[in-house]
């Protein structure tokens, strides 16, 4: 499987590596939120359903629910965010990742947008 970045309509990104899906929020999303001050991540081992709100990213005056792009088990969380939530602003696509979800079998990413599609999508927002 390739490691290319894909996007959801909720402005999350995913990178799939085998059956592990890494999730974060897009540059657009962090910009809309403003300074991120707190991230509420799920517990390791939590099982999430696609479309379910499983994490919360907060700025001073706004809250954004993060919806699971795939179903599976939370196997890694980005612990750095606890003390440095600003990583989401500084490096949304890299150091500001949120969690990794392990899926059963192959991750279904057919509905997701690639970089170009997402940029076109943003123009319509």
């Amino acid at each position: 499987m390739s490691e290319k970045i894909l996007y959801t309509k909720e402005h999350e990104w995913v990178v799939v590596k085998d059956n592990i899906v890494r999730v974060g929020i897009s540059d657009y999303a962090q910009n809309e939120l403003g300074d991120v001050v707190f991230v509420d991540l799920p517990e390791l081992g939590d099982v999430v359903e696609e479309g379910e709100g499983f994490a919360v990213v907060e700025s001073v005056k706004a809250v954004s629910d993060i919806y699971a792009p795939v179903s599976g088990e939370i196997v890694t969380i980005n612990e750095e965010l606890e003390d440095s939530p600003e990583l989401i602003n500084e490096s949304p696509l890299d150091r500001g990742w949120l969690v990794e979800i392990k899926v059963d079998g192959v991750a279904q990413t057919g509905d997701l947008m690639n970089q170009q599609e997402y940029e076109a999508f943003l123009k319509g927002v």
């Binding site: 707190f38 907060e58 700025s59 001073v60 005056k61 706004a62 809250v63």
Partner: peptide, 9 residues
């Protein structure tokens, strides 16, 4: 910590 409060949440 205002995101707990009614005017935002």
């Amino acid at each position: 910590l205002q995101t707990r409060e009614q005017h935002i949440r």
